[in-house]
């Protein structure tokens, strides 16, 4: 009964949504828009939003990766929120699993190849992760993928050392400092420039590593934060106390 109802509802949703999106007459270019009167300056914006991003990102942010420019600069506040979602989830997981951790659960010993392989692979993982988040403004990637790659290194550690956890305290400190750094970079924008998260560093030379103002700094903070947060989550889900 329950399954039939569920099937009927989901098929209905499927039919309605598919019909709606297939017949939708949304424009397939990004040139619409531009009639908006800005409430602060009372000026017309004369171009559509994506067009303006593509045209001005080099001038405004110095990042060659437009997606990064949007994520970190134009819509940087969203990203602060996004970091906070992950932070909230990590905190929530720690809160829920604090008391429920089990000690000394028997695990299978990992085999030799995994043990030795991890030692060989781990430095590379860390380097790749770091590379990804440092070069976020130049190449695809950024703080989140970089942090996730580093966290995969943590996962490898957890797999190898079956009866040990990660240094939870250190991860927590890293996480806090990285998060505060991000918020502080934003707040300093209010001091050195005019607005929260506004760029106040020189943009540097386009397509060089040391360019794009605060973007690399933020991405480094995010990289550390995401790496330590995901590590903390993995540690908590594994459920072993810090040694």
């Amino acid at each position: 009964m329950r399954k039939i109802v569920a099937a009927i509802i989901s098929i209905t949703v499927f039919v309605i949504l598919t019909y709606f999106f297939i017949t939708s007459s949304a424009p397939i270019n990004y040139t619409t828009g531009g009639q908006y009167i800005n409430p602060i300056t009372h000026e017309h914006s004369n171009q559509s939003v994506p067009q303006q991003y593509l045209k001005d990102s080099k001038k405004d942010t110095g990042a060659s990766n437009v997606v990064t420019a949007i994520v970190v600069e134009y819509r940087g506040f969203d990203t602060l929120g996004e970091v906070t979602v992950l932070f909230t989830a990590a905190t929530g997981i720690a809160l829920l699993l604090d008391e429920l951790k089990r000690r000394n659960v028997p695990h299978d010993e990992p085999n030799f190849i995994v043990k030795v392989g991890s030692i060989v692979v781990l430095p590379f993982i860390v380097v790749v992760g770091t590379y990804i988040f440092i070069h976020g403004h130049l190449t695809p990637g950024g703080g989140f993928p970089g942090g996730a790659v580093i966290a995969s290194g943590f996962l490898l550690l957890l797999l190898v050392h079956t009866n040990r956890g990660l240094p939870e305290r250190k991860l927590s400190v890293t996480e806090s400092i990285a998060g505060m750094t991000y918020a502080l970079i934003g707040l300093l924008g209010l001091v050195f420039a005019h607005e929260f998260l506004e760029n106040y560093l020189p943009l540097g030379t386009f397509t060089y590593l040391f360019s794009a103002g605060i973007i690399p700094l933020i991405y480094i903070a995010i990289g550390f934060k995401v790496g330590s947060e995901l590590g903390g989550i993995l540690h908590n889900l594994k459920g072993v106390h810090e040694e």
């Binding site: 828009g33 602060i40 300056t41 000026e43 914006s45 600069e73 134009y74 940087g76 969203d78 998260l197």
Partner: peptide
């Protein structure tokens, strides 16, 4: 925010 006029910035 971020020093860009809406709708470009937030």
């Amino acid at each position: 925010l971020s020093g860009f006029y809406p709708p470009i910035g937030i």
